[in-house]
Design a protein around this nucleic acid. Structure first.
Lengths: 335, 335
DNA sequence: CTGAAAGCGCTTACAG
DNA sequence: CTGAAAGCGCTTACAG
């Protein structure tokens, strides 16, 4: 694979000190007053030997790797895919590289990933926290610049970038109300995590406001058995004596899974049952029925997370907690 | 942020040599015959000081980082999202970490990413090559274990994992033929890259075999202006005197963009025009029309790429060139 | 069984 | 203006 060439090799070959090589390679030959002659010789020799700096050695010496660790729940989910893209793009602009891992919503996987990334001396972390590890991940925040995305843990000394989840589901219920739907249910995960709880809270508050006489109906599904649980939950909602006339799905994955089940049951969306989904998806643009969904500004959220992280890494002390506003989108059905 | 503790700190505190600490931390105290007593003391001290090994220092010394660099065209594209997931999962099983970047189909971005990853001393690279950089990226293969995914460059001394693209589009034309469609066109990128050229070749060969009297019609679109180009291409195909009766879209993105345009033109898919798409997509399951697409075994492809790369990194000398077979999938339309 | 020491490839005060 | 040297946190032959 060819022996690596180091600045020592260049120094030897050019007959100069390794310090001078280091200065020239870092473009600080002017400040360090290396003569133009020596600098040129060094540049020539470096080119000749095809020198490639070793970032690892530099990192060790400098105590900084210019690397960001990213832990998402699932990179193959388009929400996190878009976010990862934005994060990499923004990080790259600031000369940071991104290492990533998938937690698959599993806390022990998430913890292992965080440990791995820390042992690799990332300068900061962007994490989607998962159920079960709240206290552990919180401690992390004292040891390392950290920004939560998509979800968060209640604590004033933690950075996060999230959607205003309360407002989003409140708005969803309101939209349904304006279209004449009263018996609205919500389907989310069986999770204590704030993003889910806030979506439930927005739903409950909106129901209280708009449909005070209607009993609220919160269906929960386990991430471990989405298909099965959503089938049971939806069937129950539709079969009860006071069947619901509208449903808000609280996440991307649940929206898709839910619609698939409703389709299997031959329920006509927006005729038999009105539905509001969460997060954009290419699929939504192809529905044969009009469809409304809560859209998160994923790209801006990813960029913001990097921005906050970089501030923290640069020593900024106060915390930033940013809530983005959703947008309610009506897709136009395929004719 | 708390001072980092090193093995030197542990050695001092425990009153032993740093060598012993290193042995114990690596679990090789038995082979190195460190006494059980000393080993225990070291473990206790490490726990007490909350020692976290510095992987960077280890990497520098060992000349291996246990890191894989991944350069994809676009992580937010579900094809690459799924692949990245598979790659991270498989790498993680082998104690490798993944650094990634998006080239956005831009060669200079791709080259910069590769350089960055190399300066970070990745042990190997998995790359989706892009148009324009064939010769440069090829040289890389001599310097570093490398596996191409999705696309490749013709060269017997390069590893790759791709789809049998020829067979896939050949099959697409054949399927259309069997359903009675004769005037089949294909739409792909304006690219010299092998994966596109092979898809065109499969189309041409199949047309020669099944519809020898029909003129072949290959529409090309630039990645830079997909929407505009696909609109023009499709409109031309439909308006010419001998309008096509069926179209094969040669990629994921083109399938979506193409269908969106056809929809805008109020063309009824599978009634006015038969279509075969490329790559799976959640959207396909929700179409109101029956839809057939070429499905790539993305997950297996990602895993295979890691497997090959690990073999190479472990010193295996011969090259592996793997072509996976597609599957032709008929989605059942929403009623 | 244990320890002192060299060295991975850099950066950077310091002396001249 | 330039060079010798220490040190980042590890691993690992080598000597005892």
């Amino acid at each position: 694979m060819g022996k690596k060439v180091s600045i020592t090799d260049i120094a030897k070959k050019a007959g100069v000190s390794i310090a001078s090589v280091s200065y020239v390679m870092n473009g600080i030959e002017k400040e360090k007053r290396v003569s133009e002659e020596v600098a040129n010789k060094i540049r020539e020799t470096a080119a000749l030997l095809n020198y490639q700096p070793n970032h690892i050695a530099k990192s060790l010496k400098q105590g900084s790797t210019k690397t960001i660790g990213l832990v998402v729940a699932d990179i193959s989910n388009s929400f996190f895919g878009d976010m990862a893209k934005a994060i990499e793009e923004e990080a790259s602009k600031h000369a940071y590289t991104v290492i990533f891992g998938n937690s698959n919503e599993d806390f022990s996987k998430s913890r292992n990933l965080v440990n791995t990334l820390m042992s690799r001396q990332v300068d900061g972390l962007i994490v989607t926290p998962v159920q079960g590890g709240e206290s552990k991940i919180q401690k992390l925040s004292n040891k390392m610049p950290l920004v939560f995305v998509d979800r968060y843990i209640e604590n004033e000394s933690i950075n996060y970038v999230i959607l205003d989840n309360y407002a989003a589901s409140y708005d969803a219920v309101e939209q349904l109300y304006n279209k004449g739907f009263r018996k609205t249910a919500i389907v989310g995960y069986d999770s204590d995590m704030m993003h889910i709880q806030e979506r439930f809270r927005g739903y409950r508050e909106a129901m209280k406001r708009f449909n005070p006489d209607v009993e609220t109906l919160v269906g929960t599904v386990s991430y471990q058995s989405i298909e099965e649980d959503i089938a049971n939950t939806l069937d129950a909602m539709l079969q009860q004596e006071q069947a619901v006339d509208s449903i808000v799905f609280a996440t991307n994955t649940l929206t898709i899974a839910g619609l698939q089940h409703l389709r299997k049951r031959r329920i006509k969306i927006q005729e038999d049952l009105s539905v509001i989904g969460f997060d954009g998806n290419v699929a939504f643009d192809f529905f044969s029925f009009p469809f409304t969904y809560v859209k998160q500004p994923v790209y801006e959220m990813g960029k913001k997370a990097v921005e906050i992280l970089i501030n923290k890494m640069n020593g900024k002390n106060d915390f930033e907690q940013v809530k983005f506003k959703h947008e309610m989108v009506d897709s136009i059905p395929v004719k």
